[in-house]
Structure formats: structure tokens, C-alpha cells
């Protein structure tokens, strides 16, 4: 199998062209930093220094102000997000039913810690509060898909679907 090249979205020039369009559209309106950052995150997947600097210069505000907003809201991320987000429930019911062991298995499979993103930028792993599906415990979500009654052995096959 050929190794697929992984490119950080920050290194793709077209992304900045897209961002420039967004900035030009919003620049005139005061208070449009948040929508611009939302779009920027859509384009790049996250908001690293380069992107925040680009936004600051384009919007004619200080980098400090952009950084303040980007770190205030939980919706913004300063680290790359994977193509898919795994939310593993660590609520009481799931925990009792062995979520800890499931988590260890997922971490091992992806080689990441909680909050981290796999090297191939495929997955971001998050530990969540109760997902409200305690009857299916232990539960995890991958993007919008729900997986219940998980066992440690079922994990590799589930992840394979998204690779």
C-alpha cells in the first residue's frame, strides 16, 4: 500500500486564499472576529499561530486579541483535529461497565492520549461526560455514529471502518 502523504492544512496555500475571502467579507463589520475564526477553523481544522496571525493582520486587530478569543471559547482548538472525533463516554454507567479498559484499547490502537490527535490526522480522541445512552454502556461515538455494548476486542474493527 502506498503511503499517503499527510499534509498539515497550514502548509496548503489555497487554504489561505479561502481564508482571505472570508476576511474580506467580514472585515468591514465590527465584532466579526468570532465568525471569521469559525470559518478559519472549518478551513484549517484548527487555529495554530500562523492562522491566528493571518486573521489578526487581515482583521487589523492584535494577535493578542485573536488569541484571547480563540482560547476563551471551547469550540476553538489550537491543536489539529482529526478527520473523525471519537467521544468515549466516561459517565458513571459506562465507567462501571468497563469504559476504562475500552479507553486504554483505543489509546493503544491510535497511539494518542485523551485530547490528542493521531499522527495520520484521522482521529481525535475525547473522553466525554454521560452521552445519555446508559442502556448501551459502555458507549462511544465516532462523529455522529453511536457504538454500544463495546468490548475491548470489538475496537479494532470499528476503527477500521474510518481509516
Amino acid at each position: 500500500m502506498a503511503v499517503k502523504e499527510v499534509r498539515d492544512p497550514v502548509d496548503i496555500p489555497e487554504n489561505y486564499e479561502k481564508l482571505k475571502e472570508v476576511i474580506d467579507e467580514h472585515k468591514v463589520k465590527r465584532g466579526s472576529l468570532i465568525p471569521v475564526l469559525q470559518k478559519a477553523q472549518e478551513i484549517f481544522g484548527y487555529l495554530p499561530l500562523e492562522v491566528q496571525k493571518y486573521v489578526a493582520e487581515g482583521m487589523n486587530v492584535s494577535l493578542q486579541e485573536v488569541y484571547g478569543v480563540a482560547t476563551f471559547y471551547a469550540q476553538f482548538s489550537l491543536t489539529p483535529k482529526g478527520e473523525h472525533t471519537i467521544g468515549l463516554c466516561m459517565g458513571t454507567a459506562c465507567y462501571v461497565k468497563g469504559a476504562k479498559a475500552i479507553l486504554e484499547k483505543v489509546k493503544e490502537e491510535l497511539g494518542v492520549e485523551v485530547g490528542g490527535t493521531s499522527e495520520d490526522l484521522k482521529f481525535t480522541l475525547e473522553a466525554t461526560r454521560c452521552l445519555g445512552a446508559c442502556g448501551l454502556a459502555p458507549v462511544m461515538m465516532i462523529d455522529e455514529d453511536v457504538y454500544g455494548r463495546l468490548t475491548v476486542d470489538s475496537i479494532p474493527d470499528i476503527l477500521k471502518k474510518y481509516r
Binding site: 499561530l49 486579541e65 484571547g68
Partner: peptide, 25 residues
């Protein structure tokens, strides 16, 4: 730093218990 000197080398980041004053990143 921001309003008088217009330098903005330090400012607030994060929220709640994670609130910090300092330079970016």
C-alpha cells in the same frame, strides 16, 4: 499594554480557572 502603549504583548487567555495573563501561545 494594549490601550496606552498599543503594544498588546500581554493579554488574557483561557477562561474560568484557566484564565491567564501573558503573551500568546
Amino acid at each position: 499594554c494594549r490601550d496606552v502603549q498599543t503594544v498588546s504583548a500581554i493579554g488574557v487567555s483561557g477562561r474560568g480557572m484557566g484564565t491567564m495573563i501573558g503573551p500568546v501561545f
